[in-house]
């Protein structure tokens, strides 16, 4: 796929997260599913957010659109979207941004469409909410236009159909059309958009994302647990673990020279062509994510890390530190894991 390591028009941030914290109450005190997370997303890039289920990547997305499911709450930090702190906006002001300037494509196109409403109604109601000045026929015309854009055939017929009458791939295209229908989307958050689809359909949908991203000049945050998806589409990758970003890097650098032991573990779980017979079994990362209600004092990956050193790694939470241009890692020992580290610095410079 023709993609450069760095996004076009890099530098100008469209979304800046500063110390964002999402907490849920529990009987043992509240716990942070997103822990003081800072991140800058550049205009026009596709940022992949990767991690195991439960690492907080979906909650991060919900926090950006202001829909953390209760009793969870975004308790701290700032979410600057085009320079405006979303956290400080009123609920209605946030609602006006959702579905218009910031849109979301969900994981499950099947369950995310209302089974009792026609496709057309579910598309045009976005316009009714955000473009009240449009007439009924204008809304319909816009729906047809955007359906064509995402490659839905027989758009006119589809409008009158119910979700159960469509295939999974078309449903996901409908969800994408829904995100684009206002025509003003600056930030598109795709939460596992291909997880529920067949492999062949998956590739088509990902291609569509890449195409639309350049057509519409929008910024995409692509949330996934699947590194293969990221490899195909993203410019940059943020790896999340237990509510924190542990590594942030341009996509090629990350695959060439992963710095964080967790990233390496994730990469090893990918099936590889040409792997030797003895290593042909799929690797897994042993152990479990720590209990976030009582987070450990040190590195969150300590209990599962093959390079963990008692006294250092379990003493304090490592900071997310800059390693090279565009590269950040959250590990006490990244320098001491030499072979890889050298390769990484070399590749980046």
């Amino acid at each position: 796929m023709s993609r450069q390591g760095v996004a076009p028009g890099a530098g100008e941030p469209v979304l800046q997260l500063e110390g964002v914290e999402v907490r849920f109450p529990s009987p043992h005190g509240s716990f942070a599913v997103v822990d003081r997370l800072s991140l800058s997303v550049t205009r026009g890039e596709i940022l992949g957010v990767v991690g195991e289920s439960g690492c907080g990547k979906s909650m991060l997305a919900r926090s950006i659109v202001g829909l953390v499911p209760p009793p969870g709450r975004t308790v701290g930090g700032a979410i600057l979207f085009d320079g405006v702190d979303l956290v400080r906006l009123s609920p209605d002001e946030r609602r006006r941004i959702r579905g218009d300037a910031i849109a979301v494509v969900p994981q499950e196109p099947m369950t995310s469409l209302n089974p009792t409403l026609r496709i057309g109604d579910q598309l045009t109601e976005v316009l009714r909410a955000h473009r009240p000045e449009m007439s009924r026929s204008q809304r319909r015309a816009r729906a047809l236009e955007v359906m064509e854009q995402v490659g839905i055939q027989f758009a006119g017929q589809r409008l009158a159909q119910y979700p159960h009458e469509l295939s999974g791939g078309i449903r996901q295209r409908v969800m994408i059309a829904m995100a684009l229908i206002c025509g003003a989307v600056k930030l598109l958050i795709a939460d596992e958009p291909t997880t529920a689809l067949d492999v062949t359909i998956q590739a088509q949908i990902l291609e569509l994302f890449v195409r639309l991203q350049s057509e519409e000049q929008m910024t995409v945050i692509l949330i996934t647990h699947d590194l293969a998806v990221v490899a195909q589409t993203a410019h940059r990758v943020a790896v999340m673990y237990a509510g924190c970003i542990v590594e942030l890097a341009p996509v090629l650098d990350l695959f060439d020279a992963p710095l964080h032991p967790y990233t390496r573990g994730l990469l090893e779980t990918l099936p590889r062509r040409g792997a030797s017979a003895s290593k042909s079994h799929l690797a897994t990362i042993a152990g479990a994510v720590p209990d976030l209600a009582r987070p450990p004092a040190g590195c969150r990956f300590f209990n599962r890390c093959p390079h963990a050193l008692a006294g250092i790694c379990d003493a304090a939470l490592p900071a997310l530190e800059p390693v090279a241009d565009e590269r950040w890692v959250r590990c006490h020992r990244w320098r001491e894991l030499p072979a890889v580290a050298a390769a990484a610095v070399g590749a980046a410079s």
């Binding site: 779980t269 990362i285 599962r304």
Partner: peptide
């Protein structure tokens, strides 16, 4: 889901 993640859901 990795086996690790599957284990992680058990306590919940």
């Amino acid at each position: 889901m990795t086996p690790a993640a599957a284990e992680a859901t058990t306590p919940s």
